[in-house]
Amino acid sequence: MTSPRILLLPGFQNSGVGHWQTLWETQFGDLRVEQHDWMQPLRGDWITRLEDVVQQQPGPVLLAAHSLGCHLVAAWAAVSGSTAKVQGALLVAPPDVTQPNFPPQLHRWVVPVLNALPFPATLVASTDDPYCSFEAAEKLAGHWGTTVNNIGARGHINANSGLGDWPQGRALLLNQK
């Protein structure tokens, strides 16, 4: 049986130096799904790119999404014919796209896709994420049919959260399969 390929799905503005996704890419050879435009993300373009990358993989995949990448997973899963290739997903710090101060360049994302995901997934949320309350994250998890992992007060669960290469997150992802 082929080991699943881990696809990294960064959010708005990509994941920079010190971010757990970047560290996973460097240390483990995970594949970052590069988007055409990280600064003006168009939902349809991002969905198409993810579909292309999933179809290119010879075997199963695991999805490791951060921030807007979580909404990408939900939007992609609602329209893709390739979801059977996904063994599981880790959805980390999804933003509340309905909040009034959501960045205007993300206007294509303000109506969230709330369908249940057709594969196992864990949503990891922080109690002090400036982009999403824990309660809003729990609601997203309910819609998406995911389990919720409360990571405590870790902000947006990014490079500023002090997680390093975040072995606990990797374990959560690998336990999805």
Rank of each mutant, 00 (worst) to 15 (best):
W166L: 06
N158V: 11
R170V: 01
G142T: 08
G152C: 10
P120G: 11
D129R: 13
V148T: 10
A121V: 02
F119T: 00
A121W: 00
C132I: 05
L174C: 08
F134G: 05
Q168D: 13
L140G: 01
W144V: 01
L172K: 06
P167F: 00
G169K: 02
G155L: 11
C132R: 07
G155N: 14
P120M: 10
N175R: 08
Q168L: 10
L173V: 04
G155C: 14
L140Q: 10
L123C: 07
A121P: 03
A137Q: 11
A136M: 07
H156M: 11
H156C: 11
N175L: 06
L123K: 04
N160R: 09
N160L: 08
L174P: 00
Q168H: 10
F119E: 00
A121D: 02
A159E: 13
P167I: 06
W166P: 03
A141M: 05
G162Y: 13
L173K: 03
G162Q: 13
P167M: 08
R154S: 15
T122Q: 09
W166N: 07
N175F: 04
G164A: 15
D165T: 11
L140A: 12
T127G: 15
I151L: 14
L140P: 00
G142K: 11
D165H: 14
R154A: 15
F134S: 04
Y131R: 12
A171Y: 08
F134N: 03
A136G: 05
R170H: 09
G142D: 12
V148M: 03
N150K: 12
A171G: 07
G155H: 15
V148Y: 05
V148L: 04
G152V: 04
G155F: 15
D165A: 15
P120C: 11
D128S: 04
C132W: 05
P167C: 10
E135Y: 01
R170D: 04
Q168F: 10
L174R: 10
W166S: 09
K139F: 09
L174D: 09
T122M: 08
P167D: 14
G162H: 14
N158H: 14
I151C: 11
R170N: 06
L173Y: 03
E138P: 00
H156S: 15
A153D: 07
T127F: 05
T127S: 15
N150V: 02
A136Q: 11
G169C: 04
N175K: 09
P167K: 13
H156T: 09
Y131A: 14
P120K: 13
R154V: 15
F134M: 05
A136P: 00
S133W: 01
L123T: 15
G164L: 13
L123D: 04
V148P: 00
C132G: 09
A153S: 13
L123Q: 02
